[in-house]
Simulated scan of single mutants.
Amino acid sequence: MRLVIAQCQVDYAGRLTAHLPMAKRLIMVKADTSVSIHADDRAYKPLNWMSPPCTMTVQEVLPGTDVAATTQDIDSQITQVWEVKGPQGDTLQISIGQIYYDAEHDFGVDPGLQKDGVEAHLQALLAENPTTFGEGWQLVQREYYTPIGPVDLLLRNDEGQYVAVEVKRRGEIDGVEQLTRYLELMNRDPLMSPVSGVFAAQQIKPQARTLATDRGISCVTVNYDELRGLDNPEDRLF
C-alpha cells in the first residue's frame, strides 16, 4: 500500500462529474490497484475513489508548465498529475501539490476477518445447510476469495446461478455495503455473471434491510438455534 499526504485537487469524470478543490488530503493506493482520497473526517468513507481493477499514469509537471487546460484551481505548486482509469472508462485525475508524506508498505497476505464464535459457527452451519436459502441450492465454496476480501459463502441456486452470501450475527448497513462491493466486482467476471446477493443474519436492522432491497439484495433472517437443532418446531406448544 502507498500512503501519500499532500495538497491535491481531484476531478472525477464518468457517470457524473465531481470536483474536489485543492486541500490537504490522504491518498491511498492499494495493492488491488484501487485508489481512494480521504479527508481528516468521515471515519472510513473516502471523499472519492476508483474501484479495482484500474490503471494509473503519472505525469511530472515541470516548473512553469501550463496545466490549466486539464485542471481547475491550479497554481504553480503542482508537481504531478495522476490519471486513474477505471474498468468502465471513468477517470479520476489527481493534481498533486506539496507532498508531506509518501511511503509504501508491504502488508503481505491478509488472514481475513476473524469472526466471533457465534458468527463463525453461523457461517459454518449455513454452509452445511444451503437449502436454508431455497430448495436445490448448493454450496460452491466457503470464504470465496476476491481481490477485496473473502465472500462468506458462494452458492448456486436452483437455476444454477451464483449467489454471494454475506453472513452477520447482527445485520447493519456496513454489511450491505460490504456485500455490494463484492457483487460489483464479481459481476464483472463474464464466467460468473449474473451473481445475486443474500444478506443473512440473526437480526437485520430496518435501515440495512431497506438499503439491501433497494440494491436488489435479498435478506434472510436466520434462526441460529434451529440450525443447531435446538429449536425443533415440532416440539413447540405454540
Rank of each mutant, 00 (worst) to 15 (best):
R2E: 06
L3A: 08
V4D: 07
C8W: 00
Q9R: 08
Q9K: 07
V10Y: 07
A13G: 09
T17S: 07
T17F: 00
T17Q: 07
L20R: 12
A23D: 11
R25P: 00
I27L: 10
K30I: 00
T33W: 00
T33N: 10
T33M: 04
S36H: 05
S36I: 02
A39I: 03
D40W: 12
D41I: 00
D41K: 06
Y44H: 07
Y44M: 01
K45S: 03
P46C: 09
P46H: 03
L47K: 11
M50E: 01
T55P: 02
M56V: 12
T57E: 08
V58H: 09
V58E: 13
E60S: 13
V61S: 07
P63G: 09
D66M: 12
A69F: 10
T70C: 08
Q72I: 04
I74C: 15
D75P: 06
Q80W: 06
Q80P: 08
K85G: 05
G86N: 04
G86L: 02
G86R: 03
P87K: 06
P87A: 13
Q88R: 15
D90T: 03
D90F: 07
Q98Y: 03
I99Y: 02
D106A: 12
F107C: 08
F107I: 04
V109F: 11
D110R: 13
Q114M: 11
K115M: 08
K115F: 02
K115Q: 10
G117C: 01
V118C: 03
H121T: 06
L122Q: 10
L122Y: 10
A124R: 14
L126C: 12
N129L: 04
F133N: 09
F133K: 05
E135V: 07
Q141K: 10
R142A: 11
R142N: 11
E143R: 10
I148C: 02
P150L: 03
D152H: 05
D152T: 00
L154N: 07
L155R: 12
D158Q: 14
V163H: 01
V163I: 15
A164Q: 03
R170H: 13
G171N: 12
E172M: 14
I173A: 05
D174W: 14
D174K: 13
G175K: 09
E177P: 00
Q178K: 15
Q178C: 01
L179F: 04
T180L: 11
E184K: 03
M186L: 15
R188S: 05
L191Y: 01
L191S: 09
P194D: 06
V195D: 11
S196V: 13
G197R: 07
A201Q: 05
Q202P: 06
Q202I: 11
P206G: 14
R215M: 15
G216C: 05
I217V: 07
I217E: 07
V222E: 12
V222S: 12
N223R: 14
D225H: 06
L227A: 08
G229I: 04
G229Y: 01
P233K: 03
P233I: 01
D235N: 11
R236V: 00
L237E: 10
L237H: 02
F238H: 10
F238L: 15
F238N: 13
